[in-house]
């Protein structure tokens, strides 16, 4: 690649989003896979974990690290519908709407939760504490109708009262288990 082409494909200079420890975490995954591109999803997840979103610039920086084009990272990222561009609330709560939960009132509970917080599914509360979203089957049908917080807390079987309790609890902030390894 000529020097010209390199400068053209670079994003405009900005303050880096990826910090050195984040980059270190991403690089540590390289030996696991035969190609660097395979680290795309884990890298997006690492960024998402730290920033609660994956902005465009972070994708360009990931691309640089993985030696692929920013468009390739964006292509993968946009497929999953999992990585938002602007920050999520501290805790993302998924309320399941698939068959087993729907049969037991999942759709109504999602509506109730959103109504209680004054938001639409997929939005965050104005204080940035909670995001409520719908999800297709979460694999916790033994708790149906169920909800899952993205720190791993499982809620269910829910009813309207328990949804309110759940929202109170998640508003207190994340409760990640300490990493086991």
């Amino acid at each position: 690649m000529s020097a010209d082409a390199t400068t053209r494909s670079q994003p405009p200079r900005r303050i880096a989003i990826l910090t050195e420890p984040m980059k270190e975490k991403i690089r540590a995954l390289f030996p696991r896979y035969p190609s660097k591109q395979a680290v795309t999803l884990p890298a997006l997840q690492i960024v998402h974990e730290h920033l609660r979103c994956v902005p465009l610039q972070a994708m360009a920086e990931i691309a640089e690290l993985l030696e692929i084009e920013p468009a390739e990272v964006h292509d993968t990222m946009s497929f999953y519908g999992f990585f938002p561009q602007s920050p999520l609330g501290d805790v993302r709560v998924w309320v399941c709407r698939s068959l087993s939960c729907m049969l037991r009132g999942g759709d109504e509970l999602l509506e109730h939760a959103c109504h209680r917080l004054g938001i639409e599914p997929g939005q965050s509360t104005p204080d940035g504490k909670v995001t409520v979203d719908y999800a297709e089957c979460l694999g916790i049908c033994d708790f149906a109708p169920a909800a899952l917080a993205d720190d791993g807390r499982v809620y269910g079987p829910l009813d309207e009262g328990k949804v309110d309790e759940m929202l109170e609890e998640v508003k207190q902030g994340r409760r990640d288990d300490p990493p086991r390894v």
Binding site: V39, T40, L41, D75, T76, F79, F82
Partner: peptide, 24 residues
């Protein structure tokens, strides 16, 4: 290797594509 919420990645070749860092 963790996925990112796509049902289609349970299809074996979708899974492979996703593992390679592409869309599933």
């Amino acid at each position: 290797h963790r996925g990112a919420g796509a049902y289609i990645c349970g299809e074996e070749t979708g899974l492979i594509e996703s593992l390679e860092g592409k869309r599933g």
